[in-house]
Design a protein around this nucleic acid. Sequence first.
DNA 1: CCCTGATTCGC
DNA 2: GCGAATCAGG
Length: 230
Amino acid sequence: MSWTDERIEKLTKMWEGGATASQIAEELGGVSRNAVIGKAHRLGLKARPSPVKANEKPARPAAPKKAKPAADSPPAKAADAPAPAPAPRAAAPAPSPAPARAAAPSAPAAGSDKPAGDQPRIVSVGPGGFLRQGPGDQQAPIPPAPPRRLVPAKPSPEIADKTSLLDLNDRICRWPMGHPGEPDFHFCGEKVNPGFPYCVDHCGRAYQAQLPRGARRPPPPLPFGGPRVR
DNA sequence: CCCTGATTCGC
DNA sequence: GCGAATCAGG
C-alpha cells in the first residue's frame, strides 16, 4: 500500500488522537505497526508518551545495533579521545510541580436528566417515533447535529463511560456513535423510547416522520455517518 | 510472554 | 520515502 493523502490524514488524526500504532495499522489496513510508526516519525509527529521513554539516559551507547556488513571504524582504542565526562545534561530537571490531573474528567455528555428548559416541550412520541410537540413548540424535529463522529471529550481519546457493544441491552439506545473499529466507537446508551431500539432523540432520526407534502428534509442522515470503505 | 514506541538501516 | 528488524521499557 502507499501513503495516500487520505491514509496520511487518518494516520495523523488517529496518532494525535492517542490511538496506538497497532490500532492505526489495523484500521488503515495493509500496513504494519512499524510502518505506521515510521511514517509518523517521518511526518514529524512523534512526541507521544512512549512506554520506553520514561526517562532520558545521559549516556546512549546503544549504537552498535546492526554491525554486520560495514567494516566498522577501526579499533580506535589506543590513544584516543579521553571520553569526556558526560556533558552537563538538562540543567534543570524541571521538578514538575505536580501537573494536577484534569479537573473535571468525566464529562456527562449525556444529559439524561430533565432538560426542562430550553428544549421543546415534548408532549408525546407518536407512531413511527416522531415527536409530537405542543402547538407553540414548533421547531425542526431534527437538531442540527447529525450522528457524526463523536469526538472524545477533550483530553482522553478514550471515552470514559462509553457504551460498548457488550453494554447493549433492550433498554438502552443502540444508536452507533463513530465508526466501528475506531477507538471512540460506542453506542448512544440513552434509555430507549419504549417500544423502539433507540432513545427518543435517535428515534427521531431513525424514523423520519413523513412531513406534510412540501417541506421535505433533504439529507436523510444514516447511522455510521455514511458508507465507509475498508 | 504480551504490549508499547524509537531507532536503525538496507532497499 | 519506506518499513522490517531490532531495541528497550512496561
